[in-house]
């Protein structure tokens, strides 16, 4: 795309603004240094967030580990053969008491 050629009103306006003074993009800053404490504040905030993030990552990791442990335990429980059932206890044989009918 070509730069403004100065034919339209907008192009004329931009060109004139450029001639009349620096447009904001080209204007030099009076001072390139940040205000006092700006960098230190940002760095401290970043460090705090990073620390929180480490903690958050640790929490997430331990939560996932716990879930994974549960899952593995569940799978193992499902796949392992059921314990052999003990034989039912033998019934005591019934005792038949002969009855004697009276002659």
């Amino acid at each position: 795309m070509n730069p403004p050629s100065g034919n339209t009103l907008w192009e004329q306006t931009v060109a004139a603004a450029r001639r009349s003074g620096p447009v904001p993009a080209a204007a030099p800053l009076p001072d390139d240094a940040p205000p006092p404490g700006f960098a230190a504040r940002l760095a401290a905030r970043w460090a705090e967030l990073k620390q929180n993030e480490t903690f958050r990552l640790w929490c997430r990791w331990s939560y996932r580990s716990a879930l994974a442990g549960l899952l593995i335990a569940g799978i193992v429980a499902l796949l392992s053969p059921p314990p052999a059932k003990p034989d039912p206890p033998l019934r005591a044989p019934g005792v038949e008491v002969p009855t004697f009918s009276a002659p």
């Binding site: 603004a17 001639r19 904001p24």
Partner: peptide
Amino acid sequence: ARDSDGSEVVE
């Protein structure tokens, strides 16, 4: 344009 700042109008 020497006397007036056109960048305000552009903004």
